[in-house]
Amino acid sequence: MRARVVLEVARTTFREFWRSPEAVFWTYGFPVLMAVVLGFAFQPGALPPVPVAVVAGEGTGPVVASLRQEARLQVEAMSAAEADHALARGRVALLLRLDAGEPVLRTDPTRQEAELARLLVERTLRGSSSGSDATLRAEVEDRPGARYIDFLIPGLVGLNLLGAGMWGVGFNLVQMRTQHLLRRLAVTPMRRAEFLFGYLLGRFVLVVPESVAIASFGVLVWGVPCRGSVLAALLLATVGGFAFAGLGCLLASRTRTIEGIAGLMNLFQLPMWLLGGSFFDVDRLTGVMRWASEAMPLTHVNRALRDVMLEPGTLADVAMPLGILAGFAAVCFALAMRLFRWQ
């Protein structure tokens, strides 16, 4: 491989990208924008009160009055039919009616709020009847690291690597093929490895800085912690990016049309958006979903990034995912090199 050729290909590739403002925005600006918007959307704050319906009738006045003492409940008195409808629609988490003077609590156990509503209602009613309920001391957990935004930022870094790696690398390769540029290059004494390596370099220069930008944004603006090894995080971004670039290269190695590559990309990206652990914790998944999730490079990128950012993870702690990702990248590139067609 001749360094001069690799650098020249990289330079051309980079220039082509850098001189297309739209491409720069969608590849690199968009993920940052998403971090801002989602950050605002999931800003840490107190949970809203839990809505509860009381079926209005004889003797419900005191019950309603005492429940209203509890600030975390939002109590509404309504008719039996109305209350039933509200519960069925999920507008209230709990329905209370008096059956021969005794309160009966009705909830949908599949809803998360249901248990909270039941506990609050039970405690409030018991406390008002006995008047001797010991007040438990409560503490609020508000350290950074446990909030959703803390979970989200590493996930967005992962998504950015996925997008920049796959779209950035795969899409343009196919475009160059459709415009016969690849076959023109193929009749020069430039070698396949020189081209692919230079091309990757050119597309890749901005991927790690971009990850750093998103992560820094999270740290500076949302106070997301970065407790572990910065070196490990950088390495993860690089190796993770290469894993996705490898996948992009592989998908683009023979695809002949823009539509074809767009379809293939979506086929691989959509499941990763859903099950790759960027937006929710995939460790709670079971069965096939869990299995599928573990097979995705994004899952390993995200988990390792969180280990490094949210916990004091060291390079040694993420050696295993780094190895998995490097292996994945190597296999993809090897296959892509074998399958690659200039035309």
Binding site: R15, R19, V187
Partner: peptide, 30 residues
């Protein structure tokens, strides 16, 4: 390939590259 020069029937080069930059890329291969 080092001894032949080729002009295909239709090729689009890098759209954003200048004439000189395109030639420089090809020159680097030889």
């Amino acid at each position: 390939r080092a001894r032949i020069g080729v002009c295909l029937q239709e090729t689009k080069f890098h759209e954003k590259a200048t004439v000189r930059e395109t030639l420089q890329l090809f020159r680097s291969f030889f």
